[in-house]
Amino acid sequence: MTATILTVDDSPSLRMAIRIALTNAGYTVAEAGDGVEGLAQAAATRFDLIVTDLNMPNMDGLTMIRELRKQPAQAGVPIIFLTTESDAGMKAQAKAAGATGWLVKPFVPDQLVKIARKVLGR
């Protein structure tokens, strides 16, 4: 069974880039445009991995991660957030919120796939 990955990002172009990279690597990809949509999607489907941006309108990534981790059903679901090197504080905050790992922007598709493999093991 292929792993299903949810990507949460308000930038359509970045979502597109992520979807293309992960789909090519054989994963099934769902998309959400902000934290609110992300929560709704995660409530409906249990994803194997969630890749989320932090800066988003409506609900930012940090809040979404915290909300997800409050739900027992989401325990253990790996969450990778996208960040920038300058956001060292952000990294710590996201980890504290319950994120599994991060991917620094910008990234090449291979890096994303490598990380997906790393946390999914497949």
């Binding site: 930038s11 941006d53 920038t84 991917l103 910008p106 990234f107 490598k114």
Partner: peptide
Amino acid sequence: VARADPVSVAAKA
């Protein structure tokens, strides 16, 4: 993987 930039492409977007 851990290296990056303040001018983030997508953060701006």
